[in-house]
Design a protein around this nucleic acid. Structure first.
Lengths: 213, 213
DNA sequence: CAAAAAACATACCAAGTAGTATGTGAGCGC
DNA sequence: GCGCTCACATACTACTTGGTATGTTTTTTG
């Protein structure tokens, strides 16, 4: 489920590879992809380049795998909430909520996802990298489509009203993704705190700012 | 109004300097700050490094000035809409609308603004750079405060209702800033097209997705 | 328990890039 | 028309950094 053929050692979930992904994500988040060196990532791991290049053939592939893992967790968080007997607006709310929580709890990974794959359009040289790039952008589109589908259901069952579903979904997802910019966990933060914040965000997205009546 | 003491030649608005800022913004947007080289920016200008380093002492300062110019245009777009006799909700809508239009019409500059100043926390070495950095983050806060202020007015005059003004504003601004990620002008796009899109975005922000009655 | 493979560490290099030092031609005051 | 400054272009350097080639140690396998 993780990815296609692994050209090197078994990628994700062997044991230590997730550590590499997290460390890389943190470096990429703090300094940006290009500014963060492989040595920085290794230093954060308390090891050296050798370890990283043992599992990843290039920095680009490392970035791609961070992106993949971030998106994987997004799907994992959201998909359970999208099916059910409730009206679509309810399910959509739940999806937004789960996505917001996923953003907060996988901050580094999701910050890298937000930083985006588009920037690598220039740098991607090998055909394999280009294929991977296209694949990742497809995944991002699929994720957005999840929300669009449920939103369209809501328009049909009358639980949602908007003049443009596509724009409305982009607005909502943008609001949530923006968490990676301003949200930073406070020292002693509990799960409840995050749920409260997520609820407020969902309220803003679903109800808007206007006085309802 | 642009900035304090200019250590080199008169920065903005001399004539050609704005060209440098735009070219730099486009490069930074496409490749990211670190991946874009000064030579890339110069090439886009049809000149060489010499021209850039004649006006800017370092790449970092160039980035800072791009950021400044982007924020300046944001203020320019939004401030006229914030005062007036209308209820605060109306004025806030107008501010959002203007901000969205500004994002679309200064896409490269604003993409750099969105890319963020935070990433330079690590790289900033000289004390002057650190001071500039703090200044720019203050400007960003001030910009957000503009919206918060009007939103609070709306809560008081009853035209706005939300459980947390601060979160609601962050949600709304995130939705608009997210434009820099997905919005790309179509080949033959008119001002009207952009206004239509801006209106849809504002509608989503103000009314939300839920069916109103 | 021997041997092979996995899991790293070390040492090194070639390429790209920020920044500098210096040259140069065009305009402009006098 | 002479010097002086502005507005760049050219040539060069010092340093960073992605990637590789090669050890070395631990684990697995037969």
């Amino acid at each position: 489920m993780s990815s296609e053929k692994s050209p090197l050692s078994p990628r994700i979930d062997k044991t230590g590879n997730i550590e590499i992904l997290i460390a890389a994500a943190e470096c990429f988040m703090e300094q940006g992809y290009h500014a963060a060196s492989i040595d920085d990532v290794a230093r954060r791991l308390g090891s050296t380049k050798g370890r990283i290049y043992h599992y990843y053939r290039s920095k680009t592939e490392l970035f791609f795998d961070v992106h993949r893992e971030g998106m994987r967790r997004n799907f994992e968080a959201v998909t359970p909430a999208m099916k059910g007997p409730e009206p679509a607006a309810r399910r959509l709310s739940a999806m937004f909520r789960q996505h917001a929580l996923s953003m907060m709890e996988n901050l580094a990974l999701e910050a890298v996802v937000v930083q985006g794959v588009e920037m690598h359009r220039f740098g991607a040289t090998t055909p394999e990298q280009r294929r991977t790039l296209a694949e990742l952008m497809t995944v991002r589109n699929d994720f957005e489509s999840l929300f669009k589908r449920v939103a369209y259901e809501g328009v049909e069952d009358g639980s949602i009203r908007t003049s443009d579903v596509s724009v409305a979904v982009k607005v909502a997802l943008g609001a949530i993704n923006w968490l990676s910019i301003w949200y930073r966990p406070r020292p002693a933060e509990t799960r409840d705190d995050r749920e409260i914040l997520a609820d407020k965000i969902v309220e803003s997205i679903m109800q808007g700012l206007n006085t309802p009546r």
